[in-house]
Computed example of a mutant assay.
Amino acid sequence: MSDPTVQPVPASVVEQVDAADVTLSNPHRAVLALGSNLGNRLETLQGAIDALEDTPGVRVKAVSPVYETEPWGVEPGSQPSYFNAVVIVKTTLPPDSLLERGQAIEEAFDRVREERWGPRTLDVDIVAYADVVSADPVLTLPHPRAHERAFVLAPWHDLEPEASLPGRGPVAELLAAIGLSGVSARADLELRLPD
């Protein structure tokens, strides 16, 4: 005989719990690059990390040291320098949903897209998602320029010296080939893993 005081759990609640499950059944590993050169850059990067952790189906597993970088693709001195970092996440979100979440976080930090390589409060890029290789113009994987950007490779190498960029090779070799010109570690600054 069933107990009349026990009510079934609504399906919507079950779905919410499943989506936020900290165990993340069958997660994928993704590498994300973060950058900011407007406003309180360090606070913005930390806010982005915290927002990623607050995303159902995403857990931040590692956060790199902070690097300061000259703006890329523009005249020297025309923009403030960037703070850059790399985070590694485990996620059950598919790549396009992770991209949407990254863009929503950018918007929450007042990202404006007026010019290519323009100054920005926040940039969230998917560098690699598992071993996925895709030429989709909306989300090319791995990131089509990651192999030539020290501000991505250096912090990633700090986190995972043995890492490899799908289709391009070991991060250590890619970084050695381009060098660290315009990129410097900021040992005085620190980003933290979310609680």
Rank of each mutant, 00 (worst) to 15 (best):
51 A>E: 09
82 Y>A: 04
27 P>S: 11
50 D>F: 12
26 N>E: 12
69 T>P: 10
71 P>D: 08
132 V>W: 02
185 A>V: 14
25 S>R: 13
122 L>C: 01
9 V>G: 00
48 A>P: 12
157 H>C: 09
108 A>Q: 12
57 G>A: 09
83 F>A: 06
22 V>H: 14
150 A>H: 07
178 I>S: 07
18 D>C: 14
80 P>A: 14
170 P>D: 06
115 E>K: 13
56 P>F: 15
138 V>K: 14
62 A>I: 01
55 T>P: 03
128 A>E: 02
181 S>P: 03
133 V>M: 00
115 E>Q: 15
42 L>S: 06
176 A>Q: 14
43 E>Y: 04
3 D>G: 07
17 V>D: 02
43 E>W: 08
137 P>V: 03
150 A>Q: 12
130 A>P: 00
51 A>F: 06
168 R>W: 15
28 H>G: 07
100 E>T: 14
64 S>H: 10
34 L>N: 12
55 T>E: 07
132 V>I: 09
44 T>E: 08
142 P>R: 12
193 L>C: 11
100 E>K: 13
21 D>T: 05
22 V>Q: 15
21 D>K: 04
22 V>K: 13
114 E>G: 15
23 T>L: 14
26 N>Q: 15
140 T>S: 14
166 P>R: 09
31 V>T: 10
148 E>A: 10
169 G>R: 02
14 V>E: 10
53 E>Y: 07
191 L>M: 05
52 L>M: 12
176 A>D: 15
36 S>W: 00
91 T>W: 00
5 T>H: 15
80 P>D: 13
44 T>V: 14
66 V>L: 04
26 N>L: 11
172 A>S: 15
119 P>Q: 02
183 V>T: 02
15 E>T: 06
185 A>W: 06
191 L>F: 11
20 A>R: 14
66 V>Y: 04
64 S>W: 09
83 F>K: 04
153 L>K: 02
194 P>A: 05
21 D>N: 11
37 N>A: 03
132 V>E: 01
79 Q>T: 10
51 A>Q: 13
10 P>A: 11
10 P>L: 08
186 R>F: 07
82 Y>M: 05
88 I>G: 06
183 V>M: 13
150 A>R: 10
104 A>E: 14
194 P>K: 08
12 S>N: 10
143 H>C: 08
125 D>L: 00
31 V>E: 01
135 A>R: 13
30 A>G: 03
67 Y>W: 08
95 P>L: 05
171 V>Y: 00
130 A>Q: 05
160 E>N: 06
122 L>N: 00
84 N>D: 03
159 L>A: 10
69 T>D: 03
68 E>A: 02
130 A>S: 07
193 L>E: 15
103 Q>W: 05
132 V>F: 03
110 D>S: 01
178 I>K: 03
115 E>I: 15
123 D>I: 01
123 D>M: 07
24 L>G: 04
84 N>P: 06
118 G>Y: 09
86 V>T: 01
62 A>V: 06
187 A>S: 13
158 D>I: 09
129 Y>N: 02
79 Q>R: 01
33 A>R: 01
99 L>W: 00
49 I>R: 13
81 S>L: 04
59 R>P: 09
190 E>P: 04
20 A>M: 05
28 H>Q: 14
108 A>D: 11
145 R>T: 09
113 R>H: 09
86 V>D: 01
161 P>L: 02
